[in-house]
């Protein structure tokens, strides 16, 4: 199984993702530089990692989505290739129009770095298959623009197609206002496209996936991809 980690100028979770995929999960893993527009067909999935691509100038992800690699990522996604965007990677996928909605500044206006709980809403996707419905994943967030927004019509369409994959919840998996860290509409923490081959999530699964650390909840996302087989 082969996966790629895209590197933009300003990516800073790229090495964490690479480490988990290659050294912890033992997958063949390659870097993909953002200037590279070559086809990605050799990969079973690609990851757009977190960070501050192009300094978050204008809007987070707005400049990165113009990088040549995003043409390749879009071709890959349109052919059914699996793409996982984490944090800044999620922001880039939204700006590229590969996922519905947008991310606003956190309700508090502050950068939030803390461990939160999320509940799996749709386990029937290549990204959540290994989780089980209503499984609670404890995964950290670290972002300033993670306040998910979509208009009512889009939210309804997303609900109809099972495109909400994770919601912020309490430790028991209850989706409450108190458990919403950033003001996201309907506590949405992760979404997929209609075809379910592109996922964006604000929490960082790569930060809780190394057995050196007691919490391994993040592995569920990567294990789901592994269990989903070749792209």
């Amino acid at each position: 199984m082969k996966c790629g980690v895209v590197v933009f100028p300003g990516s800073n979770c790229d090495h964490d993702c690479y480490h988990i995929l290659k050294h912890v999960l033992g997958l063949s893993t390659e870097w993909i530089w953002h200037k590279d527009n070559a086809d990605l067909d050799r990969f079973d999935w690609v990851v757009l990692p977190g960070g501050f691509s192009f300094g978050d100038y204008l809007r987070a992800g707005a400049i990165a989505r113009l990088s040549p690699v995003m043409k390749a990522v879009t071709r890959y996604a349109n052919k059914g290739g699996r793409v996982l965007g984490i944090c800044n990677g999620f922001q880039i996928l939204l700006e590229a129009g590969l996922l519905p909605g947008a991310l606003l500044n956190n309700r508090s206006q502050k950068f939030i770095c803390k461990t939160v709980h999320t509940v799996v809403e749709n386990p029937d996707t290549p990204f959540t298959r290994h989780c089980g419905k209503n499984a609670v994943l404890q995964i950290p967030i670290a972002h300033q623009q993670g306040n998910f927004y979509a208009d009512d019509e889009t939210l309804k369409r997303m609900a109809d197609h099972g495109q909400v994959l994770l919601r912020y919840a309490d430790a028991e998996g209850r989706v409450t206002e108190a458990a919403n860290p950033n003001g996201s509409v309907q506590n949405i923490a992760a979404v997929a496209n209609e075809r379910k081959n592109v996922m964006g999530m604000m929490p960082h699964p790569e930060r809780v996936a190394d057995p050196l650390w007691p919490n391994l909840d993040g592995q569920s996302i990567f294990q789901s991809l592994i269990h989903s087989g070749a792209s």
């Binding site: 606003l104 500044n105 956190n106 309700r107 206006q109 306040n147 927004y149 003001g183």
Partner: peptide
């Protein structure tokens, strides 16, 4: 209009 603008609110 309708999009939360926390900075504006502050």
């Amino acid at each position: 209009s309708g999009v939360l603008d926390p900075q504006g609110k502050a």
